[in-house]
């Protein structure tokens, strides 16, 4: 052990430095992550609103202990249960659609960009990444105007080619493959905003694939499609896993575009988990219930992360 070889005094000063610098940082971090997490769990056991007086830390008194009633509530047939399951369903639809759509666009796009001259490559990459760095609120406002049924760009374009305009964000009836139209619109906006990120990761992944593999395949007479499937995709596997999990994680937590563009409407068709948590906690002051819904979100995110670990471990075994 290197530490044992060091002289005692030096070791002590090193220990002291480690303790003095790390302890406050760790305490601080735990104060703003673990403590709230524990508190969140505690709150789920109460009917809680900070506007009511409690006995200890705001709990008890006006904020009575309700045991597991909040958990039962979100799985019951009550309105709270219905809204929870609806927002869970919407969030699932959103996340499960965003993922393939995103991959179907970004991976081929990355391959295409990889084939062009490096000067142009930078230009393309810069442009495609542009939406990712812009404020999501601003992006949502812009797309809201684009989708506007009367003054929007989309209907303007459709009418110009003789098609009928649509009330994109407020039409509850029209569905595409069973998915409500407003949800589709929000997915398009989200993918437009988010894809630059995955694109750049894929480009980096592609650059990590040695050219010899492609050359060898080319010599063997493989066409570009075969090379893509049999060389590029397998060698990108770890990048792919990473991208899939990150995309899933961020789409579970989607909030801003839904809050700004539809506020969950029409008729709760685009109400997502985080929107539901926000409204329940800060509009309707049912923080116990909101924290309970947040626990469900936490469970989903845990599962996604564990899945990632499992997949990556298999990766390492290769």
């Amino acid at each position: 052990m290197p530490a044992l070889r060091a002289r005692g005094r030096l070791l002590r000063s090193q220990h002291r430095f480690a303790a003095v610098s790390l302890t406050p940082i760790m305490l601080y971090m735990m104060g703003f992550t673990l403590l709230p997490m524990v508190w969140a769990v505690v709150i789920t056991l109460f009917r809680y609103s900070p506007t009511r007086e409690g006995v200890f830390l705001g709990l008890g008194g006006g904020n009575p202990f309700v045991g597991l009633r909040n958990y039962l509530d979100i799985f019951s047939s009550s309105i709270n249960g219905q809204l929870f399951r609806l927002s869970l369903k919407n969030t699932f639809i959103f996340a499960l659609l965003v993922l393939p759509l995103n991959l179907a666009i970004t991976l081929p796009l990355a391959v295409l960009i990889e084939t062009v001259h490096h000067r142009l490559k930078t230009v393309f990459r810069t442009i495609y990444f542009l939406p990712t760095v812009t404020s999501l609120v601003a992006v949502s406002l812009v797309w809201g105007v684009i989708y506007n049924p009367t003054f929007g760009l989309l209907n303007l374009a459709l009418r110009a080619v003789g098609l009928k305009g649509m009330p994109w964000l407020s039409d509850p009836k029209t569905t595409v493959l069973g998915i409500p139209l407003p949800m589709i619109c929000l997915i398009v906006t989200y993918v437009w905003q988010d894809m630059g990120y995955n694109l750049v990761i894929f480009i980096a992944g592609l650059q990590g694939i040695p050219e010899v593999f492609h050359e060898a395949a080319r010599v063997d007479g493989a066409n570009s499609w075969q090379r893509f499937w049999h060389i590029t995709v397998p060698l990108l596997r770890s990048t792919l896993t990473f991208v899939i999990v990150m995309t899933m994680l961020s789409s579970w937590q989607v909030f801003v575009i839904f809050y700004v563009m539809t506020r969950g409407g029409p008729g709760n068709l685009t109400r997502t988990l985080v929107l539901h948590i926000y409204e329940t906690a800060f509009r309707h002051q049912e923080m116990g219930l909101a924290a309970t819904v947040a626990m469900a979100l936490f469970a989903i995110i845990m599962l996604t992360t564990l899945l990632q670990m499992r997949l990556l471990r298999r990766e390492w075994e290769y």
Partner: peptide, 14 residues
């Protein structure tokens, strides 16, 4: 009510 509703073409604007 598809195009004229609380969310799009709100009466106060439209």
């Amino acid at each position: 009510p598809m195009t004229f509703n609380p969310e799009s073409n709100w009466v106060g604007d439209s």
